[in-house]
Write a protein that binds this DNA or RNA. Structure first.
Lengths: 206, 206
DNA sequence: CGTGGTTTTGATCATAATCAACGTCTGTGG
DNA sequence: CCACAGACGTTGATTATGATCAAAACCACG
């Protein structure tokens, strides 16, 4: 197993784990910290496609040896494990379980993207923000942190880009969610006032 | 290779290749015809997530043995090849190339979903329709058919759901694209008036 | 033919984008 | 430690886009 791990990398806040367009033969697993993945358009405009935190894989879209479709930037000082894909491929031949696991990761990523498509297409800005916050809450909870209090690692601009609205709209939605007594967001501190109510709010059939 | 192919299936127009929630151990390849994939919400509302035509794979999201996340319905009388995933897994162990190919399919599907996310998040209804039509044109062209004249297999409602707007908006966008002298859509017949102009129209940096 | 489902068009309304101004936070150098 | 610059965040006023509601026109098919 050890032969796979090319190295453990430290990535400073704001630095890139990889850039779009770079050919890559590696998968990455986040040990510590968090990242945003983004596409860059010609105009220098950036489009955030996701946020990843510890125990998540990065670089799955590039697994074929084709180049990375997006860049990954560290939102805070982070540590990642780099795994050579060719090594993984070789090892997986002798370990079907490993291969199946890899397939599962890929398959899950497809479902995640498609679920986002559905979500963003059919909810209002307010609801999308609520869903986004709830998603973060669940991810923190899954890692043993509080589901009710946590700190955002990303800017309003990043959230806006990810959710598909403007940052002004994020601000207004924050205000609205506060008025609804669902979530209190002050600066980057998030307090979920009533988790069950927030979940109910997000539930509107897909 | 033959042992993998469980059977060649014929699916009549409107019939399902598989349903969401069904556990499945098969991948499908479309030999002939076309399908739409859709999620169903509680309210009986359907959300179209994609259209697939000949030579495309279906069921990739369910590759892990978990159940299908969406349903696949035939838009016309179709033929598909059904492939047992466990058989594929076994065979792939001895044929690394096959495994790599499978990974490539999965990886591509991730990129496709993410690209759609970007597109839908950052273009107007009119532009999205143009992009949709252009995509169809390219897919027909890749299969040896005319890139300028083709027939839609799906309803306005399906396109609307896929694109993330209402069907009325699709109608208005069709009118607008006709007025712009880009595409002429009458009923289900599509005529691309000026392909290069349409491509330019769709190009606005992601 | 009619009947039910699509498609189209029109009028009005709601949501989020845009433009603009102002407040707040952060890190840097004096 | 403070002052400052620049980025980030918030709020307001106005506009544009697409949703919604409603009514025709069109079509496919028994």
């Amino acid at each position: 197993m050890d032969e796979l791990i090319v190295c453990n990398l430290r990535i400073g806040r704001g630095a890139a784990l990889y850039h779009a367009g770079t050919a890559s033969r590696h998968l990455y697993f986040i040990r510590l910290g968090s990242f945003k993945t983004l596409y860059c358009c010609e105009q220098g405009h950036q489009l955030v496609t996701g946020f990843a935190m510890s125990n998540q894989a990065l670089g799955l879209e590039a697994i074929t040896g084709e180049c990375h479709a997006c860049s990954a930037l560290a939102l805070e000082d982070s540590e990642v494990m780099s795994i050579s894909y060719s090594g993984l491929e070789r090892l997986a031949q002798d370990m079907p379980a490993l291969q199946a696991n890899l397939n599962r990761l890929l398959s899950r990523e497809i479902r995640r993207s498609q679920h986002m498509l559905i979500t963003w297409g059919h909810y209002s800005a307010q609801e999308r923000l609520a869903i986004f916050v709830l998603g973060l809450s669940r991810r923190f909870a899954a890692r043993g942190y509080s589901a009710h209090h946590f700190v955002l690692r990303m800017s309003r601009e990043d959230i806006a880009s990810f959710i598909g609205v403007r940052s002004e709209t994020i601000c207004r939605s924050i205000t609205q969610l506060r008025e609804l007594q669902l979530v209190n967001i002050e600066g980057r501190n998030v307090e979920i006032i009533h988790l069950a109510q927030l979940e109910a709010f997000c539930q509107r059939g897909y």
